[in-house]
Amino acid sequence: METVIKTKDLTKKFGDFVAVDKITFEVHKGEIFGFLGANGAGKTTAMRMLCGLSRPTSGEAMVAGIDVYHKPEEIKKNIGYMSQKFSLYEDLTVLENIKFYAGIYGLSDKDIKEKSDELVEKLGLQSQVKKLVQGLPLGWRQKLAFSVAIVHQPKIVFLDEPTGGVDPSTRKQFWDMIYDASEKGITIFVTTHYLDEAEYCDRICIMVDGKIKALDTPSQLKQNYKVNNITEVFYQLARTAKRGDD
């Protein structure tokens, strides 16, 4: 199996505070890899290091075969990213946002046209294309943001709590889109604190206080901890946490 993300003892310190403490893991091509943890467990920091947004303090990490220390800008060509903070331009229309991101990722005019038509149709946003994004409901915006994040066919897409604040039925649709992307060979790296979503992942990694406490398939984890659902696994592990919410 091809490995697309590989870390060894990856660490990030902010002064004396160790946000991410020597994490080591691998993610395979086409996998849906879930990153779970309470607020302040270090999920976002770990993800930001892998995206080339934050420089690691120590340890090693390769993303899409590229070293995060030396060529963070190279990594950026190969990944998509969608953060918990809304990342589209609210004062641009749906179509303008799609075209802008497609454009700065270097797609040709023809591809931009094809891609945006396809995307608008898939999202059922035909009647909304000329509307400013600020007028769109949150669920739609998040689906649009995800589509924009993979408009350039990246090898890996990083999703940082993508479904925060979204209603259950839209969340379901969102996960359908994730499966779709995964089937096309895009590796999905997703952080969440909706524990039911963890069950949708191929493998999950649970972080507590900056360390990886468990990493396996959801069924194997349930078996190991002798419980019926991931929520129970998470509670058992999270109970040991010393850090509060930040």
Binding site: C51, G52, L53, E73, K76, K77, I79, Y81, S83, K85, F86, S87, L88, Y89, E90, Y101, I104, Y105, G106
Partner: peptide, 13 residues
């Protein structure tokens, strides 16, 4: 403030 700069920073711009 809007967070859009982070999205820009993660592109190869």
């Amino acid at each position: 403030e809007m967070g859009t700069i982070e999205q820009i920073n993660v592109t190869p711009i």
